[in-house]
């Protein structure tokens, strides 16, 4: 399983209710329901992936976070997960707002646009960066709103969103991000994983 999912599953307490927004093939959902005995639901935009999830008996509904989160009542989940999809929304601000409304805690993973390889690409090549986590060309990318770990950190701070914990993921290496090492981690992390609360 992806390192990212291992980090996410460590955040989640046993027997909690979880909503995985953009659950894909349901790999994290399967892992959580086998190991954490949670009541877990998924929301996924791709019909193919929804069918895959349902075939595995997972409770997934076809829909997208910008339109379909509103049907879930306030604080109806202990955790809401948003893994590497925030940058693809038309209105990420609104999505975060809704995630924090629906979930008591929210886990957001962002591909870090501040990673040194990304910076170098732009600095030396003068081209839009294409990396393992950001494999798209500028003209076909679904990523409308790229941000860095620092950007998202500031975004939360400015809105009074509590950041409980921030984890840096660089290859297999997992480390904590603190205020003191934020600028450095923003340079070396491929992914940032945030545990938030309103």
């Amino acid at each position: 399983m992806k390192e990212e999912f291992k980090v996410i599953s460590k955040f989640i307490e046993e027997k909690s209710r979880v909503l995985d927004v953009g659950c894909g093939d349901g790999i994290l959902m399967e892992f959580l329901s086998k190991n954490k005995v949670v009541d877990i639901r998924g929301l996924e935009i791709s019909k193919e992936k929804v069918k895959k999830c349902l075939s595995k008996g997972l409770t997934v509904i076809e829909g997208d976070a910008e339109n379909d989160l509103k049907q879930f009542p306030d604080l109806s989940f202990d955790y809401v997960i948003l893994s590497q999809t925030l940058q693809a929304f038309m209105n990420p601000e609104k999505v975060i707002e809704n995630l924090l409304r629906v979930g008591k805690k929210v886990i957001v993973t962002i591909p870090n646009f501040g990673h040194w390889k990304v910076r170098l690409d732009l600095l030396f090549k003068g081209e839009m960066p294409v990396t393992k986590n950001l494999p798209y060309q500028w003209y076909d990318t679904p990523n409308l709103h790229m941000c860095t770990i620092l950007d998202f950190y500031n975004f939360c701070n400015n809105r009074g969103i509590n950041i409980f914990k921030t984890i840096s993921l660089n290859g297999q290496t997992i480390s904590n991000i603190k205020r003191s090492n934020l600028k450095y981690k923003n340079l070396i992390s491929e992914l940032g994983i945030f545990l938030l609360e309103k």
């Binding site: 639901r41 929804v50 349902l54 997934v60 509904i61 076809e62 879930f72 109806s76």
Partner: peptide, 9 residues
């Protein structure tokens, strides 16, 4: 809305 277990495609 009532937290029932529902899948949809």
């Amino acid at each position: 809305a009532i937290g029932a277990d529902v899948g949809f495609v």
